[in-house]
């Protein structure tokens, strides 16, 4: 028989680090971020455009340290609902499911849909495990042409949703491929350099860890097309921890997972889930990611690395 109280306590512990989304506000063309906290009030009633990023919900994962990934995704969506009046969009940066199963996509779509927000997705490698990801693209990127990448405009911000999780090469990193890069160049050509650009991709577009494959092999070419823009924000998932880096006018961010944390590069033998998360550690994790203002022309720097080993 299941120990219900133990299970519930575990679920609550997981929510401390797992239930967070990231709220983005675009003010003057410059996005700034803040991790959603359970007690946070809606502070964005200033007419600026806001959106929320969630990532790596891994519906179908049910092992230590999280036996209830639908529960922690639901907790994240509870927080999203609190800012619903100001947040206009919801972004999911991939690994919606754990094994690309229909039932996992169904559960995720139902929980995420409850927020009632326009939602845009990019695939994670766990979403394209079966049949070249046809099921994922049909459900979550139905308007996207072949390849699953697309762009859209929202309130003057140009969003670009990339796919860097397919056709990966042995020993390599994430991969965009020549066809997608050509499309990206065409998509950006002729756009005013003052257009704020937000790029979505699952695997980081900057190399967080070569050894663990946490980067995208041909991202540098994509960045040559993006550098002339005054404000470029790159939102990634995949590594289940918040990391930020600013390089010229390009700001890179990776989001937390709603499912389980992964270790910082080099802090463990492998990038597998952190299973044993002591309570004291959880509190320190909560305190790390707060308001972040992303400014153009900041020199190259990692400005936040909250998840130690």
């Amino acid at each position: 028989m299941l120990d219900v109280s133990e299970g519930r306590r575990d679920a609550l512990k997981c929510m401390l680090w797992g239930g967070a989304g990231v709220l983005w506000t675009v003010a003057g063309g410059v996005p700034k971020s803040r991790v959603l906290a359970p007690a946070m009030a809606d502070e964005t009633g200033d007419g600026n455009f806001s959106f929320v990023q969630i990532s790596d919900s891994h519906i179908g994962f049910a092992k230590s340290p999280n036996m209830d990934t639908p529960g922690t995704l639901r907790a994240a969506m509870d927080q999203v609902r609190r800012v619903r009046d100001s947040a206009r969009l919801l972004i999911h940066t991939g690994d919606v499911s754990h094994l690309s199963h229909d039932a996992q996509f169904d559960t995720a779509a139902q929980i995420i849909g409850e927020a009632g927000l326009e939602t845009h997705y990019v695939p994670g490698e766990h979403d394209v495990l079966v049949d070249d990801g046809k099921n994922f693209f049909a459900r979550f990127a139905s308007g996207a042409p072949h390849g699953g990448w697309y762009s859209f405009d929202h309130r003057g911000v140009h969003f670009i949703a990339l796919n860097n999780v397919q056709n990966l090469k042995a020993g390599g990193l994430g991969n965009l491929g020549a066809e997608q890069l050509e499309w990206l160049e065409r998509d950006l050509r002729g756009r005013s350099a003052s257009t704020p650009i937000v790029v979505l991709a699952h695997v980081p577009l900057w190399t967080v860890s070569q050894e663990w494959g946490w980067g995208t092999a041909d991202a540098s070419l994509a960045l040559t097309y993006l550098r002339r823009f005054g404000s470029v924000t790159v939102l990634n998932g995949h590594i289940h921890q918040v990391m930020q880096k600013v390089e010229g006018s390009v700001a890179f961010h990776t989001a937390r997972s709603t499912a389980f944390p992964q270790p910082a590069p080099g802090a463990a033998a492998s990038p597998g889930p952190i299973k044993d998360v002591p309570a004291g550690k959880l509190r320190s994790l909560l305190g790390v990611t707060a308001v972040r203002r992303v400014q153009a022309s900041t020199r190259l720097a990692i400005i936040d690395t909250p998840l130690g080993g």
């Binding site: 094994l99 495990l129 079966v130 090469k169 042995a170 020993g171 494959g213």
Partner: peptide, 28 residues
């Protein structure tokens, strides 16, 4: 196919040669 925890994949090697392989989810 994707191998979840506990899953098994078998392949009979009938031809001589060197077969390099990788994990398509984690190509490192």
């Amino acid at each position: 196919p994707p191998l979840d925890t506990g899953d098994v994949f078998r392949f009979a090697f009938t031809q001589k040669g060197t077969y390099r392989y990788f994990c398509t989810l984690h190509p490192h």
